[in-house]
Every structure is written in C-alpha cells, then in structure tokens.
C-alpha cells in the first residue's frame, strides 16, 4: 500500500532522511520509534507530501508522489493524518470540523456529511460534544475529534504524528484506545510514537529510526525483547 524507495530529504544542507526503504502492506500497523531528531516525523510527513521529497520514490496506493503528474490533493484524500498539536479548526465547532472536507472535497450533501460525522463522533465517544468548539474540549477529546475528522474522508490509511505527545498523561489512554480500535478494524496505520506499550501491543511491525535511517525493524516482540543493533539497545535502555 505504501512503497518507499531510497527516500532522501534535505532541509538546506541538513540531510534529515538518508535513504529510507520501506514497504507497508494493507491493514498493517507500523509504529515508528526513535530519538527526537531522528527524522521519524519528517519520514511520516513525506508520505503525504507535507514535506517535499528531495530524492527517491514514494508510491502510495499505486500513485507515485514524486511524479509531477500525480494530483497530490486527490492522493491526500486517501491518507488521513493526525497531528501532535491536533490542528483542529478553532473557528468551527466539532461537527463542522468533521464535515468540512467531506463536503468540499467529496461533495457530500450537508445531511450526508453530518450523518457521517455523527457516526464517527459516536465511534470516538464524543457525540455529545458535536456543537462545542475545540477550545472547550480537553486535549484528549480534541485529538479524538481530529481522528474522527480524518476518518470522515474514509481514507485507505492513516498517519499519526506523535498523537499523544502533547497530552497530559491521564488523557493518553483514551486516544490510544480509539487508535487500537481502528487497528482492530483493519485500518492501515503508520504511527510515530513514544508510547512503547502501544507499539508493542498494537503494532504489527516496529521501525527504529536514528539519524535519518531505519536502523532496525521487526515485529514488536523481537525488536523490544531482542534488539540486534547497539543503537536500538541503547535507545530502549534509556526509555524503558
């Protein structure tokens, strides 16, 4: 579903990604871990071209993102994204946040978009918050709305960029719970995270990134219990 070949990304003279190769299968849940500055978020953001790609190839759902003929807007409709800072639209209430893209991009009628929005709010457990504004919600609730907003486009895959890093510890669980449910339903997910518990429990595969490359990858058991690389061991020792 996602094929990445020799992906490089440079910011000026600073090479952040130094050749990433990675294939992600449908329904697979891939967790990306690693120290800050390792390029995990940049890698994720290259998958929907929020960052331009310096060289290499990213093919998502059969479409080559680096091909200038590819309509990036239509590719993005199939890739949901959830941000560390939620990025809800503060001037719109919860249901409007969710309805906007389906209406403007998928051309759903107001009723159809509202219907879909309310079902998703129910799914993330926030039906009663539909008419409230993002500023009135807790961080955990905002992030769950953001997940619902992304799902409203009925994407084929979801990208999560440290979805719980900006949350108070007691609010992390409710967001992870929603993500876990999504994974069980068969959503293809790429999750950049510091939540090792989540990676271990929900991830089908874990990628450990450091200094712009994937140092080690494997199923969670193998990677957490029996890391092969020194750098992986060092990192896991520090955080576990």
């Amino acid at each position: 579903m996602i094929k990445v070949n020799d992906l490089h990304k440079q910011f000026g003279d600073n090479e952040v990604l130094k050749g990433i190769d990675c294939h992600i299968q449908p329904t697979e849940v891939v967790c990306v871990i690693g120290p800050s500055g390792s390029g995990k978020s940049t890698f994720l953001r290259c998958l929907n071209m929020l960052e331009s790609i310096t060289s290499g190839e990213v093919v998502v759902d059969g479409k080559n993102l680096t091909d200038p003929k590819t309509n990036i807007n239509s590719v993005r409709t199939e890739i949901g994204m959830v941000f560390q800072q939620f990025n809800l639209f503060p001037h719109k209430n919860v249901i409007e946040n969710i309805m906007l893209a389906p209406q403007k991009v998928r051309k759903l009628t107001t009723e159809a978009a509202r219907d879909r929005g309310m079902k998703l709010l129910e799914k993330v457990g926030l039906s009663e918050k539909a008419e409230q504004y993002p500023g009135q919600l807790s961080g955990g609730q905002q992030q769950r709305v953001a997940i619902a907003r992304a799902l409203a486009m009925e994407p084929k895959m979801m990208l999560f960029d440290e979805p719980t890093s900006a949350l108070d510890p007691e609010l992390v669980g409710e967001v992870l719970e929603v993500m876990k449910q999504l994974a069980t339903e068969g959503m293809t997910m790429v999750v950049v995270t510091h939540e090792m518990g989540f990676a271990r429990e929900v991830g089908d595969r874990v990628l450990f990134m450091d200094d712009g490359v994937i140092v080690e990858e494997g199923n969670p058991d193998q990677l957490f219990n029996n890391p092969q690389s020194e750098r992986t061991k060092e990192f896991l020792n520090k955080i576990l």
């Binding site: 929020l50 993005r76 941000f83 990025n87 001037h91 991009v105 953001a146």
Partner: peptide, 29 residues
C-alpha cells in the same frame, strides 16, 4: 499557525479552499 494549513491540505482541500475556509476566517478576526 502553520498546522492549520497542513491540516486542511492533509484532508485533501487544495490551497485555495484551505485559504478560503480555514485561514481567511481566522485571519479576518
């Protein structure tokens, strides 16, 4: 905030739509 444009674009809205529905109303205030 830059994240507003990114959120709009990640949902598949094009640049113009994001400006019109997301950036402009907030900027106007």
């Amino acid at each position: 905030e830059k994240g507003q444009m990114e959120a709009g674009r990640s949902l598949g809205l094009n640049h113009g739509q994001t400006m019109r529905y997301i950036i402009w109303p907030q900027a106007f205030k």
